[in-house]
């Protein structure tokens, strides 16, 4: 089965419009790239696209009511929304230290989630 995919390379400001020719799930041809970075990007994006997820979780005792967190590595792109939704159900108590592991495995991805900042307790909370 022949399939064509269009991507925009994010390697540099050139933003090359890439076109991938895929036959039976395998990349046969990549065109439109001005340099090698485009080809590598296209392969990665086609075979295993992944993204860092950063969002916030509840921390009602904190200086701010939200704590920013992120996945320690990128998660598969298809899992991004599931990861965000799972994180939004969490709540943590202040104080929090930067880098503190919030969860070892978020939404079955095997990827840990850490705090992106230290968050002291709110001045008026016990």
């Amino acid at each position: 089965m022949l399939e064509k995919r269009r991507l925009t390379c994010i390697g540099c400001p050139m933003s090359c419009p890439l076109e991938l020719v895929i036959i039976d799930g395998e990349i046969r041809e990549i065109t439109g790239n001005d340099c090698k970075r485009g080809e590598a990007y296209a392969r990665q994006e086609y075979t295993a696209p992944c993204r860092m997820v950063s969002t916030t979780i509840a921390c009602n005792s904190g200086l701010w009511p939200r704590l920013p967190v992120k996945t320690v590595t990128a998660v598969p792109k298809a899992e991004v929304m599931a990861v965000a939704r799972a994180l939004h159900t969490l709540e943590i108590e202040a104080p929090v230290q930067i880098g503190q592991v919030i969860l070892d495995d978020i939404a079955g991805t095997g990827i840990a989630v850490i705090a992106c900042r230290s968050l002291p307790s709110a001045p008026n909370s016990k």
């Binding site: 509840a58 009511p65 159900t89 709540e91």
Partner: peptide, 11 residues
């Protein structure tokens, strides 16, 4: 927010 968790009113 519309989380399942009750996160208060954001005050």
């Amino acid at each position: 927010r519309q989380d399942n968790l009750s996160v208060g009113d954001g005050r």
